[in-house]
Simulated scan of single mutants.
Amino acid sequence: MFIPDDQGASASTGGFAEPPDNRPIPHENVRHMLFGRLSVVQATIKQLHHLNYAEPNDWSKPISTGRPNEVMAILTKRVNIT
């Protein structure tokens, strides 16, 4: 969420907090792939957004798989390793 500077908030650092000793938090990328009809893929992306898992614009544009009425969308998400 963006809070204007005039409300006393500082700029975001991308959502990754530093541990107390200032060592970077280890992370890896995970890739999610959705396959199905365009309407079902879009509905799933909206539901994952509603659950605060991923922003809709973070997904690729739907890509045809070559199968009738089937597309795929890809999301690469950075996750912290604890």
Results as ranks from 00 to 15, higher is better:
Phe2Asn: 05
Ile3Ser: 01
Ile3His: 03
Pro4Phe: 07
Gln7Gly: 03
Ala9Thr: 05
Ala11Val: 12
Ala11His: 06
Ala11Met: 05
Gly14Ala: 07
Gly14Lys: 06
Phe16Glu: 15
Phe16Ala: 13
Phe16Cys: 12
Ala17Cys: 02
Glu18Gln: 10
Pro19Asp: 07
Pro19Cys: 09
Asp21Lys: 06
Asp21Pro: 02
Asn22Leu: 12
Pro24Ala: 11
Pro24Leu: 08
Ile25Ser: 09
Pro26Leu: 01
Pro26Trp: 01
Glu28Arg: 13
Asn29Ala: 08
Asn29His: 11
Asn29Ile: 02
Val30Ser: 09
Arg31Lys: 15
Phe35Ser: 04
Phe35Lys: 05
Gly36Glu: 02
Arg37Pro: 09
Arg37Ala: 14
Arg37Ile: 07
Arg37Glu: 15
Leu38Ile: 10
Ser39Pro: 00
Gln42Pro: 00
Ala43Thr: 01
Thr44His: 04
Thr44Ser: 08
Lys46Leu: 13
Lys46Met: 08
Leu48Asn: 03
Leu48His: 01
His49Ala: 11
His49Arg: 06
His50Cys: 00
Asn52Ile: 03
Asn52Pro: 00
Asn52Arg: 12
Tyr53Leu: 11
Tyr53Cys: 04
Tyr53Asp: 07
Ala54Asn: 03
Glu55Ile: 09
Glu55Phe: 10
Pro56Val: 00
Asn57Lys: 12
Asp58Ile: 00
Trp59Glu: 04
Trp59Ser: 03
Ser60Asp: 11
Ser60Ile: 09
Ser60Val: 10
Lys61Glu: 15
Pro62Phe: 02
Pro62Glu: 03
Ile63Ser: 13
Ile63Ala: 14
Ser64Glu: 15
Thr65Tyr: 08
Gly66Glu: 10
Gly66Leu: 12
Gly66Val: 10
Pro68Ser: 14
Pro68Phe: 13
Pro68Asp: 15
Glu70Asp: 08
Glu70Cys: 11
Val71Cys: 08
Val71Ser: 08
Met72Glu: 12
Ile74Arg: 05
Leu75Glu: 06
Thr76Ile: 12
Lys77Asp: 06
Arg78Lys: 13
Arg78Val: 06
Thr82Ser: 12
Thr82His: 14
